[in-house]
Design a protein around this nucleic acid. Structure first.
Lengths: 323, 323
DNA sequence: CCCCAAAGGTGTAGCGTTAAACCTATTTCC
DNA sequence: GGAAATAGGTTTAACGCTACACCTTTGGGG
């Protein structure tokens, strides 16, 4: 018991000499506490579950999406700093297989991505502190972290219009209701209204958040009359769009200006380097980790946090003089 | 006890009726076994630790490197399939902070990346089944998984030479001893010898496995006389090289042919799409997971496994007619 | 009819840790 | 000088699970 006290820094009850002796013994014996035993009695584990979606074929973590990879990396660093562990787990869109969390006595959850209603019900049933990233589920049970998607899309679209583009398409993932993408569509529309440009539904190209969809969207974009710019709601899509447009023999930014969203590392790697909306993904992950450890440390943060965004100008947008 | 038997499928001692009653009770009570307790008694955890390097600044997981992200994703899927959990953990090059593994009763380890000797000593001290990926540490304690780096580099270089290039540079990461990169350099040299081309040390550009190094290497490449092609030992470097060459106004593949290594998703995203050496990274991860679960299931696999590689032809290499 | 084996199940202990209660010298205070 | 507080521990029990030993009933075989 005294050993336990010393290890956990409850040194109220231990003479300096005993503390020394214990430390020496730990060193020579190579002792490390057994966390399973600790977790068994304390009903906690200092483990935070991080849920990310599976790929379409339901078989692998969506880590090959650099967005998730980076945010996970940020989360891990913040958790580690605060002395917590991260358990990465995949979820299918419809939930299921969440028992792991309960089985390992997770202390809290961070959930990335958007899922069906059913999953959120299950999450609530587990009754753990839960932080949703990039989700607009409005329920007092959840903490939320995101960007102001409407404002960011507004600013991005306005940026293109200010460069002289009037025919701006929006290339995006699948449009559900009440999610991130919807806000971005709303921001896009607000800009058009303000600029007095009629909204044309044909200019919204909706597919999935993948490189391949971007490639495919290029043809659709090229078929749109009087369209000279595209705002993609993800860098991954924008990267595909660039590749698709190249394939069609279009020049960028001379023929088409393209903007992305996220400022992923790949946005610097494609040609031309993408002008995009930066939302410090790493910072988002780190903030997520910090929010969770704050909650666990009883420093209750606000239910909703937003991170800043900014437009980073690179080479994929050109100024278009009015014709 | 009977409940425990039923849950673990030891149904030798349970009537069909009891089994039914237990299943019903589990359902209505929403029971899930407490894995900490199980681990405490069994001294195992069905958890496999996956170690990946931290970034240079020692602060985040190197998950933003798509190579690691993808391989981790493959590992996870194989482990999950076999009913194991993955605990992702970062390591600094010099080791340290490995206690986690012991503390959670990990059953086995998968180690990605190359580290200092000291780490391998520590790993051996833990005495867990350990699989090293892409490492040439020759010690019977470890299982190893990799590609035949020498042969792959040989084939890649030969591919360029067969396309008519005689001045082929090698752009690579930092050259230690006895690692992956050294084998690739050796393969490169073997091709040159076979083709009767004098080896010129100036044509080896060594930096780090990063996009930025690729960008920087472009200037060095451009300064090399009679050099028309570059084989990069990582797609990340190749991507940077393309960007750097574009910046210098070079055309690819007309002025320079570029090959990568890994066949990462980004190799399709850059412009022009990279010709590269595919080594099915996802498959590598899955195989790693399978090897480890085989070991744990007492199906001892060979100490060393190699996966196949193949050249995938895309648009970054041109045929050069002899001048 | 008795003995034995099998089927089906119960009882006990222990994994490593910690909360809470308890114990024993000192020291402090009035 | 005596009561009370304090420092520095020790003891006990419990967390949820499983290995192992044990118990009871039933059904044959001789």
């Amino acid at each position: 018991m005294t050993v336990s006290n010393v290890i956990n820094g409850r040194r109220a009850k231990a003479s300096d000499e005993t503390v020394e002796r214990i430390k020496a013994a730990i060193e020579t014996l190579g002792y490390t506490p057994n966390l399973s035993a600790r977790s068994l009695v304390s009903k906690a584990s200092r483990m935070v579950g991080v849920l990310i979606p599976f790929t379409e074929d339901q078989n692998q973590l969506l880590l090959n999406n650099p967005f998730y990879a980076e945010i996970v990396s940020g989360i891990e660093s913040a958790l580690r700093e605060a002395g917590y562990y991260m358990m990465l787990s995949g979820v299918r869109a419809d939930g299921g297989r969440l028992e792991t969390l309960q089985s390992w006595n997770m202390d809290a959850l961070i959930v990335l991505g958007v899922y069906k209603e059913r999953l959120y019900e299950e999450l609530k049933a587990h009754d753990l502190p839960t932080l949703l990233i990039d989700s607009y589920i409005d329920d007092p049970h959840f903490y939320r972290l995101g960007v102001d998607d409407e404002a960011a899309a507004y600013r991005a679209t306005r940026y293109l219009i200010e460069k002289g583009h009037r025919g701006v398409a929006l290339v995006t993932g699948v449009i559900r209701t009440d999610g991130v993408i919807e806000r971005r569509v709303a921001g896009y529309r607000r800009t058009l209204e303000e600029a007095g440009i009629a909204f044309d539904p044909a200019r919204i190209l909706s597919g999935s958040v993948t490189f391949d969809w971007g490639v495919a969207a290029a043809e659709q974009l090229a078929a749109l009359p009087e369209t000279t710019a595209a705002f993609c709601t993800a860098d991954l899509i924008a990267a595909g769009l660039l590749a698709g447009l190249h394939r069609l023999g279009k020049r960028i930014p001379e023929d088409y200006s393209v903007m992305g969203f996220d400022n992923l590392p790949i946005s610097r790697m494609v040609y031309p380097a993408l002008t995009t909306v930066d939302q410090s993904i790493l910072g988002k992950g780190q903030l997520a980790g910090k929010l969770i450890t704050d909650i666990l440390g009883k420093n209750d943060p606000p239910r909703e946090s937003l991170i800043d965004f900014a437009i980073v100008e690179r080479d994929s947008v050109a100024i278009r003089s009015r014709s």
